[in-house]
Design a binder for these strands. Structure first.
Length: 245
DNA sequence: CAGAAAATAT
DNA sequence: GATATTTTCT
């Protein structure tokens, strides 16, 4: 077991596409005397992690990022590096939290995040290390298929009435699909058109001017946002230009 | 590739 | 249930 484990200097990698949160988290984490590294792109994070194997102790990542689903990142990290990963998002939607945990997140934080919560994240690092020791010492786990029963229980948790077997079944079906199908290739993350982003959009449209045709392609180029797709712009354009339809 | 419309997700 | 965003189809 680690003799002198200390939360001080814990190497934390923070991943969030929102630069504001990145700054805030960095500041908070540093106050906790952690060593902080931040990055705004999931891919970048993955690159850093691969580049400096054993260079971080824990990862804190936002769930929905435009360039890559946070779950995918979580999966890769857990698989390739076996580091504890904490997921975070603004909403506490049950299905997503569940998904995060199922995919190996050691914790799920809700924004806004408080110091209190960050101060104790080192426990996950320690816990993981202790767990590894146990595993090595040969402790057998009964990997019973109880999760299925539990999922059923959780699924019906919000609606505890009988006679809804059909619905429950569908729910389980979805869970299964999550586990198998897209386990490696997650769905496209939704783009959140923040004021800032919309601003860039408008800017681009203006730059193109009234004389030229402001097609999604050109707008996209002018916005110069790496992870944004033409479709994203197209749909946004559709709504902003023909609000009534 | 652009635009409309249908499908989903939040 | 309304709204926001994605996917599908022409």
């Amino acid at each position: 077991m680690e003799k002198g484990f200390s939360p001080v200097g814990l190497r934390v990698l923070v991943v969030d596409d929102d630069p504001t949160w990145l700054k805030i988290l960095e500041k908070m984490l540093k106050k906790c005397s952690y060593e902080v590294t931040t990055c705004g792109l999931a891919r970048e994070a993955l690159r850093l992690l691969r580049e400096r194997k054993d260079g971080f102790d824990i990862v804190i990542s936002d769930v929905n990022m435009p360039d890559m689903d946070g779950f995918k990142l979580l999966e890769h990290v857990g698989l390739e590096l076996d580091l504890p990963v904490i997921m975070m998002s603004v909403d506490g939607e049950t299905s997503r939290v569940m998904k995060g945990v199922q995919h190996g997140a050691c914790d799920y934080l809700l924004k806004p995040i408080r110091m209190k919560e960050l101060k104790i994240i080192w426990q996950h690092v320690l816990r993981k290390k202790l767990q590894e020791v146990r595993d090595i010492e040969g402790c057998c786990y009964d990997v019973g298929a109880d999760w299925f029963t539990q999922a059923q229980f959780l699924g019906g948790g919000e609606d505890v009435s009988f006679g809804k077997k059909r619905k429950d079944f569908d729910f389980e079906k979805k869970l299964f699909q999550d586990e198998s199908d897209q386990s490696s290739s997650s769905k496209k993350a939704r783009v959140i058109w923040s004021y800032e982003l919309h601003q860039k959009f408008v800017n681009a449209v203006n730059q193109i001017g009234c004389d030229h045709k402001a097609g999604p392609k050109k707008i996209l180029d002018l916005m110069n946002i790496p992870w944004l797709t033409r479709e994203n712009v197209a749909s946004h354009l559709q709504v902003k230009l023909y609000p009534s339809l």
